[in-house]
Design a protein around this nucleic acid. Sequence first.
RNA 1: GCGCUUGUAGUAUAGUGGUAAUAUGCUGGCUUCCCAAGCCAGUGUCCCGGGUUCAAUUCCCGGCAGGCGCACCA
Length: 494
Amino acid sequence: MKIEDNIETFNSLLRRRGFIWGPSPEIYGGLAGFYSYGPAGKALKNNILSKFRLELRAFGFSEVECPQILPEIVWEASGHLERFIDPVFRCQECETMLRADKFLREQLPNTTIDGLTFEEMGEIAFIHKLKCPKCDTHLEKIEKHNLMLKTSVGNGVTAYLRPETATTTYLLFNRLNQDARRQYPIKVFQYGKAYRNEISPRQLVLRMRAFDQFEIQLFIGKEQEYNFEEYNEISQKELPLLDWQTQEKNVLVPNRISLKQAIKTNMLKKPAFAYCLFLGYYLTSKLGFPDEVIRLRQHSPQEMAHYADDAWDLEINTKQFGWVEICGIHDRTDYDLKRHGQFSKQNFNIPMGTDQNLKEIPQILEIAFGPDRIIYTLLESNFSVEDERIILKIEPDIAPNLVAVFPLVKNKENIFNLAKKVHRLLLDSRISSFFDSAGSIGKRYRRQDELGTPYCITIDYESLDDNTVTIRHRDTMEQKRVLISEIIDYINKK
RNA sequence: GCGCUUGUAGUAUAGUGGUAAUAUGCUGGCUUCCCAAGCCAGUGUCCCGGGUUCAAUUCCCGGCAGGCGCACCA
């Protein structure tokens, strides 16, 4: 049987081995943009999250959790209500949808489009007799496409499912400020679901309508952004940076330069923001991506979100979809807190600098991960086919199973029982172990290769005499004989 | 959302106006002291709805879903 090393093999592996299933619900034909994780996928995701939580704890961050449904005023204040509703021309004849503002700008380069109401855009199209590029019908009617999912709560109160977790974290500002006893920066993160009503979701879990976000926030003073203690510890670190000016020259290869150098050349302005880039890159590199598939790409001023002053995407190069953003790092300035202060009539002005008489609204720096995108890109970049063998070279500490235990043959009772005992021993030490006795030993090794299990333990005839087992390594297929009593040490040491 | 295209076991595919197949997987058994071996037995499939027809998985229409292109992706 010939196994092709291609993307089709990978895609069917995702389903076969229980990583990603969907669109869900599959038995009813599915709804686009909604996927489920099977046991292997969910285990992988959980392990990644545990790792992130552990790391962030070490960096001084704490976790919060907020509701997913919030009243309209929140999204009015955040700017999402305005920005997430797109004006769209819908052709009466062929139903083609065109982004109105963009279309007008292309068709009428000398007319100012920015700041027009949707009605005014419709009028302009009417006056200039603009036609549908597909079928030549006159365009007039503007529709609104809302990227936020609307719902109503209780007695008809309009609310929206959050399109990002970040905003919900900001709503806690007063509480966090008290809780942290005004020790700045306040470092928090939130993990949870966010929802976007995408027009046509595609590309598996890369663009879902319900997806996970893992968003890390720093509330920080202006002065501190430029004089940030923790920056000094990491200023020598080299990151693969690609600034927007370089991209304009059509160069798309990142430059490995130190953060210090980036600040010096003005590629980055704020040391605290440089620290955020580092943190995003650090967490990513902990997951086992090869260096050459990671880059940090800066947004051009036109590409930037409405709240951002500087924005970088941490991207992974994939075979199937090219460069994929798995993390966005944004300098959101005081935009969010300013707006929420205004709309909620709260006073977010607090003393932050060396001069305690000067009050200011804190700045926010954000590192926003998309865990679903991490799962996909990590699986794809860890996937390989070697000598007719499909392997996921997942880092041991995040692999769905850390070990699998096999009896060499299953019809010898004492071997089978000893294998069960070893499996139990591992489980009792809370090591994720998987027991398998079905099929030939080779077949069982291959099954685990496809799940990315780093170690397979086999109990053979020799084990009965001397209490040793073989530990077989996923990547090299090498085997080591180890005493049963030393298995746990051996695995942990690796 | 538009255009083109596709939808058959868990996965990958073949095929047909008379309800279906190949490989692999999976389950049980035999065998086997280490990398998808072998033998035996078993398991399981035509996306959904409507129409045409004596008869539809097959043809037609609609829907849903996937792929590609366009658009969208704060």
